[in-house]
Design a protein around this nucleic acid. Structure first.
Lengths: 208, 208
DNA sequence: TCATATTTTAGAATAAGATTCTAATCAAGT
DNA sequence: ACTTGATTAGAATCTTATTCTAAAATATGA
């Protein structure tokens, strides 16, 4: 009756995971719209009833897949960031991390960033909102620290992630779609350089 | 029998346009998946048969909407770019244009950039590919010119658009979704500055 | 260990919506 | 006016998401 605090849901949990992974595979292969519940059923060996029992509907299933992925991505990013004391190293590291994660997790990346949460994630979702608020706070804190220390330019806080990761996102878009583009390593170097130029204090000389 | 080269399709053409606009409105209000053909029928006053006659199916309708919008956007961008001789001014102008267009065309922007072509635009689409190839060529040409003239850093060509517009895209994402962010004008200034720092030749001093 | 309650799974039944089809209507050229 | 192809209507069909009922599995408590 009372929910267990620990975990031993062996059967149930693993079934849930199976469904999520099957869904991820289907979604990235054929797109969310194009995958039917039947596709997921076949791939996961679960029944329709089971899928609906665990996730309610297709939209919420997609949401669960999204959460699963973004959590891992964000955790790693914060980790990298908070491990770096030096501003310049932090900037380069964050970009490297982003691109490297994408390289290691192409399916998740395709799912998370190509077709973002836009469709099924109404940004008012409690779970999603909480996660992002915390994430944003910790990112912002890191930048603030270095702004105060005089290492980084002061900007409206919401612009830092844009300048830092915008180019990566744009790049991944093409990288994951058609290929025949610059290597991820080269891109990481160049974007790191670019971001550092753009963000480091004292680059204002160009203002004329 | 032979297709007219000019245009007077008055009836047919305008019906087509009506459907596209109705679809755009529905798509941005409720999302592509959530809008039924019936929604579009109601809003456009066209019949189911008419819609299918003109577009084949919902996917192709979405595609048509996309093409319609992206064509306008790209034309304006190339125009702005080719109007600017000076590298620095060109860089700032392109960013201003991008954000300004988004401000003037919020519905189109939401449709074009929030949920990109990912879903329904398999990037192998002939029409789409042609358009983009031409667009990319002209953008690349402009940058090459200034690289040769020594005004811009030499980079792998596919990275220019990423560095230039990536931050804008990332920003618009938030701007169009939740708001409570920096104004578009401020963003345009800062991103312009950032991009110029990142792209102008001689910023390499930071390389240490 | 057995009886009972709760969670999970199956798969058939239903409902919603996309697509197809057949037959009118319209516009243009002759 | 007459023929032909394009366009429109809307009913019929087909696909797929979702709901529902009941069976199986698992946990709980004596």
């Amino acid at each position: 009756m009372v929910k267990k605090t620990g975990a031993t849901h062996s059967r149930s949990e693993s079934r849930r995971k199976e469904i999520i992974l099957a869904a991820l595979a289907c979604f990235t292969e054929q797109g969310i719209n194009e995958t039917s519940i039947t596709d997921i059923r076949r791939r996961s060996k679960a029944s329709v009833g089971s899928i609906y029992h665990h996730f309610g509907n297709k939209e919420q299933l997609a949401r669960a897949v999204y959460i699963e992925g973004i959590r891992d991505y964000q955790a790693g990013l914060v980790d990298v960031l908070e491990r770096h004391e030096d501003a310049r190293e932090g900037v380069f590291a964050i970009i490297r991390y982003h691109l490297e994660w994408a390289k290691q997790n192409p399916e998740w990346t395709r799912f998370l960033f190509q077709k973002r949460h836009a469709d099924f994630m109404s940004s008012t979702e409690k779970q999603f909102k909480e996660m992002n608020v915390d994430f944003a706070r910790r990112i912002a804190a890191w930048f603030q620290k270095h702004v105060r220390a005089g290492a980084l330019k002061r900007l409206p806080p919401d612009l830092y992630p844009c300048i830092l990761l915008g180019p990566c996102q744009e790049f991944l878009h093409h990288y994951l779609a058609t290929h025949t583009v610059t290597s991820l390593d080269t891109a990481a170097r160049e974007f790191g350089q670019a971001a550092w130029c753009a963000l480091s204090a004292g680059s204002d000389r160009e203002a004329r």
